[in-house]
Amino acid sequence: MGVHVARFKTGSEIRWGVVREEKLVVIPGSYATLAEFLGEGAARARRLAAAPEGETLAVRDVELLSPVTAPCNVVCQGQNYRSHMLEVGQDPDAKDFNQFFRKASSALTSSRGPIIKPERVRMLDYEIELGLVIGRHLSGPSRVKRENLHEFIAGLVICNDVSARDIQLAEGQWYKAKSFRTFCPAGPYLYLLDAEDNARVMNLNLRLSVNEQVRQDSNTSEMVYPPEETLSELSEVMDLFPGDLVMTGTPRGVAAGHNAPKNAKFIRKVLMAVLSEKDLSKLVVKMQSRNPAYLKDGDVVRATISSPDGGIHLGTQENRVVAASRAAP
């Protein structure tokens, strides 16, 4: 079995610990970044998990931080779950390429930190995603297979790909729409992967609620492009480094898909025949602006990812949406 670890703050000091129920066994050493921790820190975590000793703290007495640290590459997959493709009018069986985009690492925030809603954003959406933390430097094409995932992925983490849909749709700028500060809650726990966990990566339950109303409830088995295919392709395109984050897409239930018509694909095809891409985007934004499912000031977003047997549990995110006008400077 792998090991659950957390990055946390106590007083003015930032430390790492092995998670044991509601306690943290403090890992000796100082690690300024996730990349630093993935060396000796991860090895110490595994030894402590096998034979716990030393200082122990209660989880409730510390401030949990994002285990993923900036700066790093944050690479995201778009429309990688069958149900999500269907809800936005796309055909998953017709998809013949893996869609990638970027997100600024300055968007990272903790599993308890506020999601700041900019004044200019009217259509704020959520997307629960499984995050893959890169464990080794990939400087050229690599053949990643299901059985050797643990050689490339250091661990797993919950992420929320918060998105400003009005900017994404109206301007066609995914990077800007998804990169505002606090638009990437990550954690609370990082699960350090073992060889025996490789197969379990494709059987994890994802669940997200807004104000205790379940919005997303799915399983990673729904992915169109699984992690091994994704990492193999990315390694042909770009360098990846220890501590980098790959977000693997979201299932159905996002606000943008709320009450979407069953024939959305047909309607979009008809509209594209008579409207320019710009006019179509304006129409979609106008229609979506009346959608009550988008996040509002005061909403609480709760997210969990776990295996059916509970052996992998990435903790619980609970982030409150706060209007920028009310956020502390």
Score class of each variant (00 low, 15 high):
4 H>S: 14
5 V>F: 03
5 V>P: 05
8 F>Q: 01
9 K>T: 03
9 K>Q: 11
9 K>A: 03
12 S>F: 08
15 R>Y: 03
19 V>G: 04
19 V>H: 06
22 E>M: 11
22 E>D: 15
24 L>Q: 09
25 V>Q: 04
26 V>W: 02
30 S>E: 15
31 Y>W: 09
38 L>W: 03
39 G>H: 03
42 A>Q: 11
43 A>D: 13
43 A>K: 14
46 R>S: 10
47 R>I: 02
49 A>W: 07
53 E>L: 00
54 G>T: 01
55 E>W: 01
56 T>M: 09
59 V>R: 14
60 R>D: 13
61 D>A: 14
61 D>R: 09
61 D>L: 00
62 V>L: 05
70 A>Y: 01
71 P>S: 06
72 C>G: 00
74 V>D: 05
74 V>Q: 05
74 V>E: 03
75 V>A: 12
78 G>W: 14
79 Q>H: 15
84 H>Q: 08
85 M>I: 09
86 L>M: 14
87 E>F: 02
95 K>T: 10
99 Q>E: 14
103 K>S: 12
108 L>D: 03
110 S>D: 03
111 S>K: 04
111 S>L: 06
113 G>C: 07
116 I>H: 10
119 E>N: 12
123 M>L: 14
131 G>F: 12
132 L>T: 12
134 I>Y: 03
138 L>V: 12
139 S>R: 11
140 G>R: 15
141 P>K: 15
141 P>F: 12
144 V>K: 07
146 R>E: 14
148 N>K: 10
149 L>V: 09
155 G>N: 05
156 L>I: 09
158 I>Q: 07
158 I>E: 05
162 V>S: 07
162 V>C: 06
164 A>Q: 03
164 A>C: 02
170 A>W: 06
172 G>I: 01
175 Y>R: 13
176 K>N: 08
177 A>T: 02
182 T>I: 04
182 T>Q: 10
185 P>M: 12
187 G>H: 05
189 Y>R: 02
193 L>I: 12
195 A>T: 06
199 A>I: 07
202 M>R: 01
203 N>E: 13
207 R>F: 03
208 L>S: 11
209 S>G: 08
212 E>A: 09
213 Q>P: 00
213 Q>R: 13
213 Q>T: 13
219 N>M: 04
219 N>P: 01
222 E>N: 03
224 V>D: 09
225 Y>S: 14
229 E>C: 06
230 T>N: 10
232 S>D: 08
232 S>I: 07
232 S>V: 08
236 E>T: 15
236 E>D: 08
243 G>L: 00
244 D>S: 05
252 R>C: 13
252 R>T: 14
253 G>I: 07
255 A>L: 11
256 A>I: 04
257 G>V: 01
259 N>V: 02
260 A>W: 02
260 A>Q: 02
261 P>S: 06
261 P>L: 06
265 K>H: 10
265 K>P: 02
266 F>M: 12
270 V>G: 06
273 A>F: 07
273 A>G: 10
274 V>S: 08
276 S>W: 00
276 S>F: 00
279 D>H: 00
280 L>Q: 10
281 S>D: 09
282 K>S: 14
284 V>E: 13
284 V>Q: 12
286 K>Q: 11
292 P>C: 05
294 Y>R: 05
298 G>F: 07
299 D>L: 00
299 D>G: 01
299 D>I: 02
300 V>M: 11
302 R>Q: 13
314 L>E: 04
314 L>Q: 02
316 T>M: 04
319 N>Q: 11
320 R>S: 07
321 V>H: 05
328 A>F: 12
